[in-house]
Design a binder for these strands. Structure first.
Lengths: 194, 194, 194, 194
DNA sequence: CATGAATGAGCTTTCATTCAT
DNA sequence: CATGAATGAAAGCTCATTCAT
């Protein structure tokens, strides 16, 4: 059974995210994960049920932060479109705060989908609230009604995350303002000039 | 050294895509890949340099088809926005034609990024031509100028692929028309009502 | 990286020498080596970098013992010829002490030559000191001067080892006295200047 | 069943000896053997029963030549010691004629011992006639009587071969005259009763 | 005669994982 | 709590070998 993870261990273990993002979980030995976390392999197993549980923990930390941020944005004042803007805003902030974990997740969506806890958290932290927000926007007239709001939420998640990840890995961290504008242009404002 | 793959073997090997998409490449035994391809494990290794080379081949087939389709759409008549619509159109067609390979790629972006040939093909088949198309649109005035067209191309690729994959796995194939409308609404037409 | 081998494991592993001498290293499964050593295959790999490292270790133990013995004989009292006699003496003792390892080495000289550590130890433990001894003998007049003392040392090593190995495998251990006489007759008396 | 090997194939296959001497038979792929022989892998199997049969053939050619040469030397005129000198002479000639095969044999004595045909040929071509020659020498008084003439023959074989091989690999071919003198000094003069 | 294509049969090696201390 | 030592369980990969052509 997995013990509750001490904050220090949890923080140390987040450092493994980059390793995993670069080599894949299967390409990363549990010894290497333990090593970057500054603990022994056996200690890793003392706190986690296995390699995959470590990754699940990393993803959970990320998605919990994302969920909190999105919730705050969605619950804030303003019409739906204004709140959607704020969602993209905080989403990018989260990627900037947890760049390694975000990369790890982005680059191994299949694994994430296979982890029930993560699958659920993705839904709860982003897909569900954004779907609702889309519907709110259809109601208050600030967002064009989408026939498939959940699919829209997924596409928005993908577009934003992809742009954020690629921007940080290509141009270096810090240029997320450019990404924000790009997402606004591409998605929110619409590309159409008409 | 990798031998040239006979067409029949190539086609058979594509059937392994689903297996790999579901379990990950590392979770899939080379024996299972050989099995669904109807050949022996040793024969698999006779034609491919390893498990990963099989996946690379699957991705390459997909991306070659995508590249051809995108090229056709981009080279066709019409203004940039009209051609961009057609790009999304053929993109979805390709996902519908190679649903398994598309899922495998979508769910293991990290692996794809680590395969030089695939990384290159992604660029050449989609990122490069769509970036150019964005710039063409800025010139002919049919697409809002993007400050980072390459990032925009990546985001569009991600949004479209994600939506298509999710649509086909959730609702079953056939509903890609709905995805098309969604992408048009979400991205191309813009969500903004102003 | 190879861990330092515990004495007990080291001793147990020496028992694999016969197996390897009879079947060749490639004809011997690592599982069999582990088995005669009384450890699991994985434990074998925990301490050794591979099958060949086990053989290298076996050879190293033998050559270290030979080196010590030869050193003792060479450093002892007496003129060069007397000390050469003692060298052959202790050499045969070593073969009698490690008959399996000696056979394994004798029957796979190619492998031994390909193992850098072993190649070096052969030189250091026998070729070098005996070459020097030959030269000492030329100086003190008790050994006929050899134009190529190193080659002579190699030939003496080969003759002695071959005779010892063949004697023990044909006639059974215990008849090394006969070998000693034979080597004295065949080689040493020939070298004698008296 | 092994077909009779055409002279050309036989000659070509001798070229594999060096490969095998350097890497060991197990370290040499049958494809590599076929390659240096200028034939296809399947053709190799058309003429030989397997990799080991190729090596057996190489050794057989060498030992047949050695046997003929030794026979000629032993059957020639002169007393036993004179004929023994000639044996060493022709022995070195054979090593000079088949340096690769000689190295391959020298470096894989275990394999040679495991090949019944080769074991037998070693006896017949060298051990037996030289043992007899030692006894002839004891009779005609030109060679010091050996208590174990067979062991002596083996030791002489080992000493001569080792010196010849090492001389050719270290100093380059051509210096076998030096080896000859060395062997004469080291061994034969010692045996001489004069 | 000669060989390209295909594979059966293993074996080495690797780790994730466990547990006594 | 923490870990060094040990291993069970796999699986990727290799190659000698076969055979239809």
């Amino acid at each position: 059974m997995m013990r509750s993870v001490p904050p220090e261990i949890s923080a140390n273990v987040m450092r493994a995210a980059d390793l995993i993002a670069d080599q894949g979980l299967d390409g990363t030995k549990s010894e290497d994960i333990a090593s970057v976390a500054g603990i022994s392999k056996a200690t890793l197993y003392y706190y986690f049920d296995g390699k995959e549980a470590v990754l699940s923990h990393i993803f959970a930390v990320l998605l919990d932060a994302l969920g909190d941020a999105v919730q705050g944005a969605v619950d804030g004042p303003g019409n739906a479109m204004e709140r959607l803007h704020r969602v993209v805003d905080v989403h990018l902030d989260i990627v900037a705060t947890y760049p390694k974990a975000a990369r790890a997740l982005h680059f191994d969506l299949g694994r994430a989908a296979r982890l029930p806890e993560i699958d659920e958290k993705t839904r709860a932290s982003y897909i569900d609230p954004i779907s609702s927000l889309f519907e709110d926007g259809a109601t208050d007239g600030t967002i064009r009604p989408l026939r498939q709001p959940r699919l829209g939420a997924m596409a928005l998640l993908a577009a934003t995350t992809t742009a954020a990840i690629m921007a940080t890995s290509i141009d270096g961290i810090g240029d997320l303002d450019g990404v924000k504008e790009m997402i606004f242009e591409l998605v929110l404002d619409g590309l159409s000039t008409t």
